[in-house]
Computed example of a mutant assay.
Amino acid sequence: MDPRSEVLLRQAELFGGPLLLAGLPADDLLGRLPQARGWSWHAGEQALLATRFAGRSHFGVTPPAEDFAAAVLFLPKSRELTDYLLSALAARLAGRQLFLVGEKRAGIERAAKQLAAFGRTRKLDSARHCQLWQLTVENAPATPDLDALARHYSLPLSDGPLSVISLPGVFSHGRLDIGSALLLEHLDQLPAGHLLDFGCGAGVIGAALKRRYPESQVTLLDVDAFAVASSRLTLAANGLEANVISGDGIAAAPQGLAAILSNPPFHQGVHTHYQATENLLRHAAEHLERHGQLRLVANSFLKYPPLIEQHLGPCHTLAEAKGFRIYSASKP
């Protein structure tokens, strides 16, 4: 059981009615709270919840349409995303209860100050290195316009400016990160065919690929619903069409790919998390056609080349700059 869920269940008498659990972990919490419903924006957790609790969890960037008597927000990493989620929930809960739960090291006390915009807060519990906060929504905001919260910026690429739109919570929100900037400089000489932007974020790499290789089919894949929505906005802003899908890891990717390109993050919340990238390296060959290529950028200190060579083939370093390297390997 997730420690945040354990803290909630210490106060189970508060959560007996129709309840929305926003950003909930994929544990047994829905089983312990039979009138609760989930809202997830993580495709992997949503898949697990859907398997165990069919029809009881909603996936997307906006709350489910059903009415609920109270809501609990499981604190996300991003402050901007927390602002949006709290506003989206508070807009539906005038005069009702809104709760916030999270780990101390994830910044729950800071987030409790964001919660205070909607009423008087109080800390209900502190255990398992987590805190639970409560308020009655006295100052219900208008329903937030997610698109209005997007950040827009333009990249001066060799084939012209590329417009990028990112939503709250998306990796490197509102700016181009160093790894992606390096990868953008090394998109040449890719094999013809179906191209995948794995862990697409705001869609920078996928949009650049589609514009550079207009005859190629391009798919963008991310585990996060806000990233998927951002990628669609970025593609539309540049007049491009590509397939954007949500899924947890390389298992969700199409088969028969000519190339997989990725700037995989290695943090999930406040935790270091390498599993998605390691699974990509172990299973990329299963999704690549013969002579298909894997090309990714990663922090130099990450020991990916041995894993690439074990599961795909000889690993070449195409470039190195500012603490990042671009690795390339081809399926025999």
Rank of each mutant, 00 (worst) to 15 (best):
Q275C: 00
L19W: 06
A47M: 02
S172V: 08
L98A: 09
D145F: 01
R37C: 11
Q189N: 15
H267I: 09
G119V: 10
E6R: 15
L288G: 10
S40V: 07
L196E: 09
T219W: 06
S300G: 15
D147R: 14
S246H: 00
P18V: 02
W39D: 11
T51K: 13
L195T: 04
L146H: 08
G249A: 08
I260A: 00
Q114E: 13
Q46L: 13
A50L: 08
L307P: 08
H42A: 13
K210P: 02
L89H: 04
A127Y: 02
I178R: 12
L288I: 10
A225M: 11
E286N: 13
D188W: 02
L49M: 03
L100A: 03
Y213L: 09
G239W: 06
E138I: 04
P265V: 01
A116Y: 08
S328W: 01
L167T: 01
V270D: 12
K123G: 04
F118V: 05
A259W: 03
D147H: 14
G323P: 01
T277K: 01
L182I: 07
P141A: 00
V297H: 05
D125M: 12
S87C: 11
V297C: 02
F59W: 14
H42Q: 14
S328M: 06
L124Q: 00
L182M: 08
S216L: 01
A43H: 15
T62F: 09
G256L: 07
S57Q: 05
P76K: 11
I245S: 11
D159L: 13
V297P: 03
R105I: 05
N279I: 03
G107Y: 05
P3F: 05
P265C: 03
A236K: 12
D2I: 12
L115H: 04
R282E: 11
S216V: 01
G16L: 12
D27Q: 11
G16Y: 03
T121R: 05
Q268G: 00
S330N: 09
A253R: 00
L48N: 06
D67N: 12
C315E: 08
Q46Y: 14
A50P: 04
A285F: 06
L281N: 08
S126E: 14
V270T: 13
V61S: 10
T62C: 10
D67A: 15
P214H: 03
R282K: 14
H271L: 12
S154C: 12
F118W: 02
E241Y: 02
G323K: 05
A90T: 08
S172N: 13
E103Y: 03
I245C: 02
A150W: 00
H58V: 11
T51W: 07
A207N: 04
E215I: 01
L19Y: 00
R56C: 13
A259C: 02
L190G: 05
M1A: 10
R10A: 15
R151L: 15
L196G: 01
V297Q: 10
A140S: 12
A251P: 03
A69F: 00
R295W: 06
L167R: 03
L75E: 07
Q255C: 05
W41L: 06
A116R: 15
L296D: 08
P264Y: 11
L14K: 12
G201M: 07
S330T: 14
K331M: 10
A91T: 03
Q35N: 14
E215Q: 15
A88T: 02
L318F: 04
